[in-house]
């Protein structure tokens, strides 16, 4: 059974180069990828993730709003009783990584992360993939 990932853009950030490239790289690695488009809210992401029964949610954040929005996505999932892990990729300064982890984000990928690193991290988060 292949790993299912929802990739999402939350808030007002329209930079979608990274999310599209990562989505294709995950597909190349044999994963199923769902993309819900731009300008989503934490609630719409959580609802889509649960409905699509994905294994991981990946947020792409390049506008500096990650400390506000990523924890809201985590809590929108937990409030609905879901334990789907949330990972973040984008422009995230190193100092913010610990803060995001403390708020329940499972992993963070900054600029320059390779496809291999991202695939390995997702695989490690999904028990049935092993």
């Amino acid at each position: 059974m292949s790993v299912r990932v929802l990739v999402a853009k939350v808030g007002l950030d329209g930079h979608d180069r990274g999310i599209k490239v990562v989505a294709r790289l995950l597909r190349d690695a044999g994963m199923e990828v769902v993309y819900t488009g731009l300008f989503q809210t934490p609630d719409t992401v959580a609802i889509a993730a649960i409905q699509e029964d994905v294994d991981v949610v990946g947020l792409s954040m390049l506008s500096g709003a990650h400390l506000t929005l990523a924890p809201l996505v985590v809590s929108a999932l937990r409030d609905r009783g879901s334990d789907i892990p949330v990972i973040v990729g984008g422009i995230v300064p190193a100092n913010d990584v610990d803060e995001l982890r403390a708020q329940g984000v499972a992993d963070v990928f900054g600029p320059g992360a390779s496809a291999q690193e991202i695939v390995a991290a997702i695989t490690a988060l999904v028990p049935h993939s092993n």
Binding site: G11, L12, D13, T41, S63, G64, A65, L67, T68, L69
Partner: peptide, 9 residues
């Protein structure tokens, strides 16, 4: 919808 984005970028 502006939460967390005001003055950020």
């Amino acid at each position: 919808m502006a939460r967390g984005e005001v003055g950020r970028c």
